[in-house]
Design a protein around this nucleic acid. Sequence first.
RNA 1: GCCGCUGUGGCUUAGAGGUAUAGCGAUUCCUUGGUAAGGAAUAGGUCGCGGGUUCAAUUCCCGUCAGCGGCUCCA
Length: 624
Amino acid sequence: MKLLLIHSDFIEYEVKDKAIKTPEDTSKKKDRLEEALTAFTAVEKVDEKSPKQAVKQAVDEIIKTAEQLKVKNIMVYPYAHLSSNLASPKKAQEILIEMEYELKQKNFNVKRSPFGWYKAFKISCKGHPLSELSREILPVKEETESLKKERKLSSDWYILTEDGNLHDVGKFNFKSHENLKKFSFYEKEKSRAVKGEPAHVTLMKKLEIADYEPASDGGNMRFYPKGRFIKKLIEHYVTRRVVEYGGLEVETPIMYDMQHPTLSEYLQRFPARQYQIESDKRNFFLRFAACFGQFLMAHDATISYKDLPLKIYELTKYSFRREQSGELTGLRRLRAFTMPDVHAFTSDLDMAMNEFKVRFDLSLSVLENIGIENNDIEMALRTTKDFYEKNKNFILDLVKKFGKPILVEIWDERIFYFILKFEFNFVDLSEKASALSTDQIDIENGERYDIKFTDKDGTIKHPLILHCSPSGAIERVIYALLEKEAIKMSKGEKPMLPLWLSPTQIRFIPVGDEYIKECENFSQELNKNEIYKIRLDIDDREESVSKKIRDAEKEWIPIIVVIGEKEKNSKKFTPRFRDKSVVDISKKYSMKELSDLVIKNIKGYPQEPIPLPIYLSKRPKFKG
RNA sequence: GCCGCUGUGGCUUAGAGGUAUAGCGAUUCCUUGGUAAGGAAUAGGUCGCGGGUUCAAUUCCCGUCAGCGGCUCCA
């Protein structure tokens, strides 16, 4: 059976002449249905063998579509021209009547136009992507075969365990791998579970990190001082790690000529995804990755095999992708985002694979040090069957490094420009998965961009290119950190940002005005270390001590120190530690001990001064 | 982009065909405080925006913008 489903403002028809010898009796010469899903239907020879099944499958398909479109009115419309292998009119008519009956049973408002007549019809198709669908209904036996064929063309999904075994995703026992299950399910099929609104969106506003900017395009965020600060520290940290790894930091333009021969070829494949800008008579697109600038730069460079692997790095501020408006959410999916992107140009597959390993370790370490640990992420690997077969041990090494089972997608043939790709995915509170770190081995673009290096023997060759983002988009890293804390909160635990990222690390709360001076003295004592400056502030507002503590807790301040007569005299403090796992809360601390404690935790991370006035009374409220 | 839901002072929100609640926050005053909200007063809103219906619209209708959920997508 062939179905053509049209979502229309209306459908109307008028019966004209007989099309077959014995058309269906009909008194109604004209009919019309508003806001309808019209199912143009051609019943075929194969349906005669198992008419019940054909009816059921067709009805299921129609209902599925109708529900998606929230349509109550359905017009079943016989339309022979969809097939060249029609069933007999008698059988066809029976099946159509049966379809009408079944649909009515499911409480749809169903009309059916008469069988066997030439009819004039008018239809007003709504024109959205789901408004025109064609479906082929085949008896089950043949269906599995066609499905198999389809699957062969696309890809297979597996779970690869540390022992080197590939498991069918459907059969794998996900016990103690809950997140991998959520991730696999999200990747492989479309998860339809009911979900609340994203937790990090509430948090990013409440903590004055980021917010929507109605005056800009969707997915272009504003960052408040604390948000800019956190973002800046992550940017610095990732950049430092990449530079230590050997990345040469560059800066390239954010817009490129759409007519440029190399770029246009690349663009043709994804035409509707960019912002476009006009300047004089030329049209430009905003970059959606750092590739363009770096590849064009590499194209013009003189590169010897001695320089390889050559690593070029840029922190793109911004990369732009015109995602569909409905796909945008908070800091998770944006139209403008900050992307660290380090490419490695390598001489051959051996070098590429070696480098892939190095960057795999780098990515894992960067994420972990930022605060997103191994059990917060799930790994996916995509490759071709051919590559997998030849490099099983290499891939297994990666899995062992990762230390838990991963999701693997294997294509029969290469679909994209890369032959191997890994991703570290974060699964959030509403069970959505997003990729953070990623790296891929690209075997096309060296040639496409005509990037060349001179090999040992003097021949000119195109390099294989690795594309890596060790952390993923910085905004998305913040999203993951916030969602991670939201998950904690849902378990009744206190949320906190890592100490090195907290805009305020220690807050002093004077018991009264007269102790503000004391706070200042102590803060100098606290910051005696030459290299590490602890970010502290003083709540000098005219509020009760309890109120100030409450506000500090709401702000996720890691360490709160109340200062009054006792402290003034004894120089010993009883701080409130937000994260009680690493400290002794019964202990009294001196300023030196507190300072050492903080420094121990922020060693090796970027240092920046507090991004707000030290006195709370001098701070504006950006939100609420 | 499609389908659906939502949109009320800076924030969170009540409400209804006759221009509107309350809490937080802000300001001022009182209180001078000891580990998650001390007390009082004042100011602040063309009820997202545009149009229509109506004697009258913030409330009903249409459109639009934004957010959320789902679909699709994620090079």
